[in-house]
Computed example of a mutant assay.
Amino acid sequence: MRKTLNASRLQAEVSRRLHRRHEVVEDGVKIGVPRPQLQEPDKAGCNWDMKHFGNAAGFEREIAAVLSEVRAQYNLSTETKDESNPFD
């Protein structure tokens, strides 16, 4: 059963894991992580994906590995926040 995160937290989790990878740390590169995009659940049941990472040339394998890990653990929240209540 996957946990659910909103788009900002999901983006931050992918970024955190990606920038902890040895190959990324070693090169000192900052990879731009896009916001997750909602999609129909795939065969595994994941309802989101990310495409078009910035400054990613040469790090495709690390990105794919992190996405695979995070997509297996989390789904993107589909709940919308009620903007009329600022205290929510």
Rank of each mutant, 00 (worst) to 15 (best):
Q39W: 00
A44P: 00
F53D: 07
E60H: 14
H52A: 11
D42T: 12
I63P: 07
P41Q: 01
Q37M: 09
E62K: 15
D42E: 09
E60D: 15
A65L: 11
C46M: 03
P34N: 06
A72V: 00
A72D: 10
I63M: 08
A64T: 09
Q39K: 14
E69M: 02
E62P: 07
W48F: 10
Q39D: 01
F59M: 11
E83A: 12
A65H: 10
A56E: 15
Q37Y: 04
E79Y: 06
E83K: 09
T78G: 00
L67H: 04
A57W: 01
F59K: 15
R71T: 11
R61G: 13
M50S: 09
A56S: 15
T78Q: 09
M50N: 11
H52G: 01
V66K: 08
V66N: 10
W48R: 07
E69W: 00
G58M: 11
M50C: 13
E83H: 07
E83Q: 07
S84G: 02
N75L: 09
R35E: 12
V66H: 05
Y74T: 02
N47V: 04
H52Y: 14
T78V: 14
S68I: 05
N47H: 03
D82S: 10
R35G: 07
K81C: 04
D42M: 07
L38E: 11
F53C: 08
E69H: 04
L38G: 05
W48M: 03
S84A: 13
K43T: 13
I63E: 05
V70M: 14
C46W: 00
L38R: 08
A72Q: 03
C46G: 13
